[in-house]
């Protein structure tokens, strides 16, 4: 958990010094494979993982509730 906190601080510091990318320069960033999330076709995979694994959340999938799973 301490490691996760340090990584978070490092990430925020890194991000604050990033160069601003103009909207017309975001061609590669707007590629469908660059989306910061799971693809629609993987939602049933996320559901299966939520049922079979104790961990959930922080991935756009189920966080708890809505099913009789753990």
């Amino acid at each position: 958990m301490k490691i996760a906190g340090k990584l978070l601080v490092l990430f925020v510091i890194t991000c604050s010094s990033c160069v601003v990318v103009k909207e017309y320069e975001m061609v590669h960033l707007n590629d469908p494979d660059m989306i910061l999330g799971d693809q629609n076709c993987d939602r049933n995979l996320l559901t299966a993982q939520a049922y079979r694994e104790a961990a959930s959340g922080a991935n756009g999938g189920k966080t708890g509730g809505g099913c009789g799973c753990n």
Binding site: F11, C18, V19, H28, L29, L36, G57, A58, N59, T63
Partner: peptide, 26 residues
Amino acid sequence: QSYAAGLGFSQILSKKMQGSLALDVV
């Protein structure tokens, strides 16, 4: 009953790289 709250942060790092962080509490 399940109650969830989450915080998300994403950042473009360069013209070819972007990242995000997510925190969920349930």
